[in-house]
C-alpha cells in the first residue's frame, strides 16, 4: 500500500511538475530592415508540443505566425 502511494505520488509529481503551460520557446528574435529607416520585428519560436517551428511577424491585419513546413 505504501509503495503504491509512493508510486502514485511520484507519477503525480512527474505529471504536474513537468507539464508546460507555455508551449513556445524563443529560437530567435530580431529586427530586419525593410526600407529607409524602417524595420520589421521577427520572432522565431519552437512549439515543444509537436516539435514544430513558426515564424511570427506583424502585418496590416495584426500579428501573424506562419508554421514552417518540414
Amino acid at each position: 500500500m505504501t509503495m503504491k502511494m509512493v508510486v502514485a505520488a511520484l507519477c503525480l509529481f512527474a505529471v504536474s511538475g513537468c507539464t508546460r503551460i507555455y508551449p513556445y520557446v524563443t529560437m530567435s528574435s530580431h529586427t530586419i530592415a525593410v526600407g529607409d529607416k524602417q524595420e520589421a520585428d521577427v520572432l522565431w519560436v519552437a512549439d515543444v508540443r509537436d516539435d514544430s517551428m513558426s515564424r511570427c511577424h506583424n502585418s496590416p491585419q495584426g500579428p501573424k505566425c506562419v508554421r514552417v513546413q518540414h
Binding site: Y24, T26, D36, K37, Q38, E39, L43
Partner: peptide
Amino acid sequence: LSSHVVADRG
C-alpha cells in the same frame, strides 16, 4: 517571448 525597439521612419 521577446522585446525590441523597431525603427519606423524616424
